[in-house]
Computed example of a mutant assay.
Amino acid sequence: MSFEWVWTDNNLRFLAEAFLINFEIALIAMVLALAVGLPLALMSLSTIAPVRLAAKLWVDVFRNLPLILMILFLALQMPESLKSGWQDNAPGFLPDALRSQFILAGITGLVLYNSAVLAEVFRAGILSLAKGQQEAAAALGMTYGQQMRLVVLPQGLRRMVPATVSQLITLNKDTTLVSIIAIQEVVRSGRILSGTAGNPFSGGGDVQAPILSVMIVIGLMFVAVNLTLSRLSRRLEERGAERTATTPAAPAVAETAPA
């Protein structure tokens, strides 16, 4: 298995630029999934039955559908006016892949699936708090919104950090699925590189790029980014623990009178 292609021509740069597309898609989908997932978690805990049922329906449907199926369905069924409107009016500074008419389907599928999973993560984090926390806030005269905003969520969000980052790592890996709707991301670029390297008719050099070695390099790119996210998650968790830790008081020493 040869890796000579890595430092030949601009092959590694070609893959790195394609990997940046995956990271940009993941970043957009992460922000939107978090913005949707937290309200869904709060809705699922609501005392209003229709609101609670609507949130649970969203979670149960989108969490259990295969992500690749949702992306394909959206790519085929999304209105042409919406797809062409994005392609024609997308900001010019975006890379070509993010101005594709199918990018909305890919990002929407990622957001629908991950918002449902994150909603369950947030709900579990909120329910893990002792009920006395909210009861004490209610005894102080806080409204339900104030209880959640000032007491419950600040504590619950710290507990949710490891599970949330784990899901965001999964989201980053899932961005490779958008290659099935002709978006030029890193896996699709890897297949192109493997097919054109060493082929003079397609502009390649004399060095071959076996598909297995190309995919190994792509895998190492994901490992590097995801390990960084894991380390960041661990650091945030440690800082949260340090912030809430209390130093135990020294035991009192009783004075005894001399005999």
Results as ranks from 00 to 15, higher is better:
residue 228 T to N: 11
residue 167 Q to C: 12
residue 33 A to S: 15
residue 55 A to Y: 00
residue 7 W to I: 14
residue 172 N to R: 09
residue 123 R to D: 15
residue 42 L to T: 01
residue 73 F to A: 04
residue 80 E to S: 13
residue 256 T to D: 11
residue 119 A to W: 03
residue 176 T to D: 12
residue 82 L to P: 01
residue 236 L to I: 02
residue 251 P to I: 06
residue 225 V to Y: 11
residue 24 E to V: 05
residue 40 L to C: 14
residue 167 Q to W: 08
residue 148 M to Y: 06
residue 241 A to N: 14
residue 95 P to Y: 07
residue 23 F to K: 03
residue 216 I to S: 11
residue 188 R to M: 13
residue 182 A to N: 15
residue 177 L to W: 03
residue 145 G to L: 12
residue 38 L to V: 14
residue 259 A to W: 04
residue 128 S to M: 13
residue 184 Q to K: 03
residue 42 L to W: 00
residue 254 A to P: 10
residue 25 I to C: 10
residue 225 V to A: 13
residue 32 L to Q: 04
residue 109 G to H: 00
residue 216 I to Q: 08
residue 3 F to S: 07
residue 187 V to E: 06
residue 159 R to Y: 11
residue 19 F to D: 00
residue 259 A to T: 09
residue 232 L to Y: 15
residue 181 I to N: 10
residue 20 L to N: 04
residue 77 Q to T: 14
residue 24 E to D: 05
residue 204 G to R: 03
residue 45 L to T: 12
residue 154 P to S: 01
residue 224 A to Q: 10
residue 111 V to Q: 02
residue 207 V to F: 09
residue 95 P to N: 08
residue 175 T to I: 07
residue 52 R to Q: 15
residue 96 D to C: 03
residue 241 A to K: 14
residue 143 T to F: 03
residue 178 V to H: 08
residue 124 A to F: 09
residue 110 L to I: 01
residue 186 V to A: 01
residue 135 E to Y: 06
residue 17 E to S: 13
residue 131 K to L: 05
residue 29 A to F: 05
residue 215 M to A: 07
residue 252 A to I: 12
residue 188 R to D: 08
residue 143 T to G: 14
residue 87 Q to L: 02
residue 20 L to H: 02
residue 6 V to C: 10
residue 49 A to Y: 10
residue 135 E to L: 04
residue 160 M to Q: 07
residue 226 N to V: 02
residue 33 A to W: 00
residue 22 N to G: 06
residue 200 P to H: 10
residue 193 L to M: 00
residue 117 V to F: 08
residue 186 V to P: 01
residue 84 S to P: 09
residue 76 L to W: 12
residue 162 P to E: 06
residue 26 A to W: 02
residue 25 I to R: 05
residue 55 A to D: 01
residue 144 Y to V: 06
residue 64 N to A: 12
residue 200 P to Q: 09
residue 112 L to I: 07
residue 114 N to I: 02
residue 2 S to Y: 05
residue 118 L to Q: 07
residue 159 R to P: 07
residue 33 A to L: 01
residue 173 K to F: 10
residue 214 V to H: 05
residue 221 M to L: 15
residue 95 P to S: 08
residue 206 D to P: 04
residue 251 P to E: 13
residue 184 Q to V: 05
residue 215 M to W: 01
residue 76 L to C: 09
residue 245 A to W: 09
residue 66 P to S: 07
residue 94 L to P: 01
residue 44 S to T: 12
residue 24 E to F: 03
residue 200 P to W: 04
residue 148 M to C: 01
residue 159 R to L: 14
residue 51 V to Q: 13
residue 92 G to M: 10
residue 148 M to V: 04
residue 120 E to A: 08
residue 240 G to P: 09
residue 78 M to W: 05
residue 23 F to G: 12
residue 178 V to Y: 07
residue 80 E to H: 11
residue 1 M to C: 06
residue 131 K to M: 06
residue 144 Y to K: 11
residue 5 W to I: 00
residue 206 D to R: 12
residue 48 I to P: 07
residue 257 A to H: 09
residue 22 N to E: 07
residue 177 L to K: 04
residue 183 I to L: 05
residue 149 R to T: 14
residue 170 T to P: 00
residue 122 F to H: 08
residue 127 L to G: 02
residue 116 A to F: 02
residue 202 S to D: 10
residue 65 L to T: 14
residue 104 L to Q: 00
residue 257 A to T: 13
residue 77 Q to E: 13
residue 255 E to G: 12
residue 99 R to D: 10
residue 59 V to M: 15
residue 105 A to M: 11
residue 26 A to N: 05
residue 61 V to G: 05
residue 142 M to K: 11
residue 249 A to P: 03
residue 35 A to R: 03
residue 66 P to R: 06
residue 200 P to R: 09
